[in-house]
Amino acid sequence: MDKLAVLIPCYNEGQTIKKVVLDVRKAIKEIPNSQIYVYDNNSTDNTAEEALSGGAIVRYEHQQGKGNVIRRMFREIDAECYVMIDGDDTYPAEEIPKMAKYVLEQKYDMVVGDRLSSSYFEENKRPFHGIGNKLVRGSINFFFKNDIRDIMTGYRAFSLEFVKTYPVLSKGFEIETEMSIFAIVNNLAMKNHIIEYRDRPEGSESKLDTFSDGFKVLKLIATLYRNYKPLPFYGWLAALLSVISILFFIPRVLVPYHLTGKVLNMPTLIVCGLMILAAIMSLYSGLILDAIQRKERREYEFRLQQVNQRKQK
Score class of each variant (00 low, 15 high):
200 R>I: 06
194 I>D: 14
131 I>R: 09
157 A>K: 04
111 V>P: 02
157 A>S: 15
172 G>T: 10
76 E>K: 10
180 S>I: 10
191 K>W: 04
99 M>H: 04
106 Q>E: 15
183 A>W: 06
142 F>M: 09
95 E>Y: 12
149 R>E: 15
164 K>I: 02
141 N>M: 00
98 K>M: 08
158 F>A: 02
161 E>W: 01
94 E>Q: 06
100 A>G: 08
104 L>H: 06
185 V>K: 14
78 D>C: 07
92 P>S: 02
130 G>D: 12
133 N>G: 13
78 D>I: 05
187 N>Q: 02
100 A>M: 04
118 S>L: 12
178 E>Q: 14
154 G>Q: 04
192 N>Y: 11
179 M>N: 13
182 F>N: 08
86 D>T: 12
120 Y>C: 01
128 F>T: 06
135 L>F: 13
189 A>H: 10
184 I>T: 06
191 K>S: 05
173 F>S: 13
85 I>Y: 04
70 I>Y: 07
149 R>I: 05
155 Y>T: 14
106 Q>N: 13
73 M>C: 09
98 K>H: 14
95 E>A: 09
163 V>A: 15
146 N>A: 15
176 E>W: 09
69 V>R: 01
195 I>A: 01
109 D>W: 02
135 L>I: 15
159 S>Q: 10
141 N>S: 11
163 V>T: 04
148 I>A: 12
178 E>H: 08
142 F>V: 09
186 N>H: 15
86 D>R: 01
83 V>E: 03
120 Y>G: 01
150 D>L: 03
169 L>T: 15
113 G>R: 05
161 E>F: 00
131 I>E: 15
114 D>R: 00
188 L>H: 03
161 E>K: 15
75 R>P: 09
110 M>F: 08
166 Y>N: 15
106 Q>R: 10
160 L>Y: 10
139 S>V: 03
160 L>T: 14
157 A>T: 14
123 E>S: 06
134 K>R: 13
122 E>T: 11
137 R>G: 02
114 D>A: 06
87 G>S: 04
188 L>G: 09
79 A>Y: 03
158 F>T: 00
162 F>H: 12
185 V>T: 15
202 E>L: 09
71 R>G: 05
123 E>W: 00
116 L>V: 07
187 N>A: 11
174 E>N: 07
106 Q>M: 06
133 N>K: 12
144 F>T: 04
185 V>D: 14
123 E>G: 04
87 G>H: 05
159 S>K: 02
114 D>E: 07
81 C>E: 00
146 N>W: 13
194 I>L: 11
83 V>C: 08
73 M>L: 12
99 M>N: 01
126 R>E: 03
127 P>Y: 03
105 E>L: 07
119 S>R: 03
95 E>R: 13
158 F>N: 09
110 M>L: 08
106 Q>P: 00
143 F>D: 14
162 F>S: 13
173 F>C: 11
